[in-house]
């Protein structure tokens, strides 16, 4: 699957280019008197070079094993992956507001429910149990400070 290879190389070139541009901005100095941007600039330039090299390599050698990106969208379960990723992002966003207990309980229901097709009852039960156990472990036994969010008044 060549398109996947080309696409990922192009992304890397873009990534390198962004760093190069920003490096020029903060000043690269000279080789004898390096500025803060010199080495990032060189690194970014090398990244661009190697990614171009990957593109050439893919086109020239027609490697048979070149990436298994063909399977990227063929699997039936990529919906599950997206759902898990989305719920984790949501968790990061609402954690401080909802607090550890509520946010964790909710995200665990999703995680227990979605991939394995558990019953709602089972998922909710396991989520509650897991939340309680981890809270006890981290907040009390390991003394981690976890955000209490809207439950602050409870003093948890």
């Amino acid at each position: 699957m060549k398109t996947g290879e080309l696409f990922s190389s192009l992304l890397l070139i873009l990534f390198g280019a962004l760093f190069c541009r920003s490096s020029l901005h903060i000043g690269i100095g000279s080789i004898g008197a390096p500025g803060p941007g010199l080495i990032p600039f060189g690194t970014g330039a090398l990244l661009i070079l190697f990614s171009l090299g990957t593109i050439v390599e893919v086109i020239v050698t027609k490697r048979a094993e070149a990436g298994n990106s063909a399977v990227l969208f063929s699997g039936r379960r990529w919906g599950v992956i997206l759902a898990v990723l989305a719920s984790l992002f949501a968790y990061a966003l609402v954690l401080n507001f909802l607090g550890f207990l509520l946010a964790t309980f909710l995200v665990l229901i999703i995680l227990f429910k979605i991939p394995e097709r558990q019953s709602w009852k089972g998922a909710v039960g396991m989520a509650a149990l897991t939340t309680a156990c981890t809270y006890a472990l981290f907040a009390y036994a390991l003394q981690s400070s976890l955000p209490s969010g809207i439950f602050e008044f409870l003093g948890l």
């Binding site: 964790t104 995680l111 558990q118 396991m126 897991t130 981890t134």
Partner: peptide, 13 residues
């Protein structure tokens, strides 16, 4: 199905 939510949860914390 039981293991992976726990792994993820530990990573989150």
């Amino acid at each position: 199905g039981i293991l992976f939510p726990l792994i993820i949860l530990f990573c989150l914390i």
